[in-house]
Design a protein around this nucleic acid. Structure first.
Lengths: 230, 230
DNA sequence: TGGATGGTTCGTTACGCACCGAACCATGAA
DNA sequence: TTCATGGTTCGGTGCGTAACGAACCATCCA
């Protein structure tokens, strides 16, 4: 009964509402300051400071001090994956928030998850690459084929990012319950989409907002016809 | 800040030591009674009863009353997956139990996870099937090829289990950080292994203990040579 | 019909911990 | 040097909740 890692400690850390909100804010992989996190979690700075000390002691976040600011970020993608997994479970068991605000649909449509594109648009992207055999799922890893490599180079991704196998990873989505493209390649794709001006980050949420023109461009660059998939 | 599912509630439920131990006991997918769970969580029956009421209200477990017993089981494989994800994270951040008992190595070698085989042996099984091209990873799903179908029929799996696509799923392992075979097919394989007498369930843990003869048979049925994998 | 066992309900206790305000320590700007 | 800002430390308060024992209900057995 006392075997294995004591995940209860980790779960209890995530389980506090303020800390959960902090982690939620950090999900897109960027580093935020203590004050910003205190603000979005609706707690005072001392409280946020204490929370962050616990999260850092447990290894869930890292922080660097720069001048008088302290920038905090997640310690790795696995933290984001675990939180997404919890969101998936909460979604399935019907534990939605009371105030399902206007940002919620936007989050389901497109959001950033530790640097890469998640939500319906993220799934569309991976599906599209997969349907054209640009990418193969091989055992526990995605495998980028030569055709996909040239396609993504054409799209504007730096070729040196396309060589590393480890860059290409899948990540399960809480809102859609399907995989989307993660890893360094996924991050590069999102960066490219933002650089092309197809979309912009929401100011205070993880949502990625496409503009009409960008949406058309995206759909033509990453088309997907569901009935052809198996 | 109030968007998405409130995963904090779920995490807080998992975060209590007694409930975590209860979930841990249920991870293999079987149904246990309230008294058994109280015993292994080291709490009184009233306490366990209260915990289970909360877990059931939240949708993490289901229960059926049979006579004067109440049998409790996980509500789905996603609960087991989330817990495994938390274990993976706890393992990475170095949060091991103090008393890393003798059962721990056995759990890493082979254990049951919601009915299917996990641990090193579970990974070996999926790797072996994959290396012989019996199974393909295709987008977010495993795909069983005809050669694999006939092989598994030969192995003793009922053919009607081999037709359904949904039966074939991958599951990430906390101890090995690789995928193993899950889903209905994974459960059928474990059942077959137990039926063949190759191994038996540990009486009071999730460990699956192979006997020497069964181990040899397993290794010859599911061989895997790591250097050939890509 | 009696006793035993599995579960639940209730009242109580006690511990943990999230939170705040105030004071304090840095860093950067005027 | 002086002021402002970001962050931390320290006491103290209060709420939430896990835990137990005792009593109660239901089921199975003898």
């Amino acid at each position: 009964m006392k075997d294995g890692p004591n995940f209860a400690l980790i779960a209890a850390l995530i389980g506090d509402p303020a800390r959960a909100e902090i982690l939620s804010q950090l999900m897109d992989g960027r580093a935020l300051t203590v004050g910003e996190l205190a603000m979005s979690a609706n707690v005072g700075r001392p409280t946020a400071s204490a929370h962050l000390a616990k999260l850092e002691a447990a290894g869930l976040v890292l922080s660097v001090r720069q001048g008088r600011n302290r920038y905090v970020r997640l310690s790795g993608a696995d933290v984001a994956h675990t939180v997404e997994s919890l969101m998936l479970l909460a979604e399935r068991t019907g534990h939605r928030r009371i105030r399902t605000g206007p940002r919620d649909p936007a989050l389901r449509e497109a959001r950033s998850c530790y640097g890469h594109l998640a939500g319906a648009k993220g799934i569309q992207m991976l599906n599209s690459l997969h349907q054209r055999d640009f990418i193969l799922r091989q055992h526990d890893r995605l495998h980028l084929r030569d055709e996909g490599r040239s396609f993504l180079t054409e799209f504007g991704i730096s070729p040196d990012l396309l060589s590393a196998e480890a860059a290409c990873v899948a990540c399960l989505d809480w809102s859609e319950r399907k995989d989307h493209l993660a890893g360094r390649l996924g991050s590069a794709c999102l960066d490219r989409i933002l650089a092309l001006g197809w979309a912009r980050r929401d100011t205070d949420s993880r949502a990625i907002r496409f503009n009409p023109k960008g949406l058309r461009e995206f759909d033509s660059a990453f088309p997907f016809t569901p009935h052809l998939s198996r």
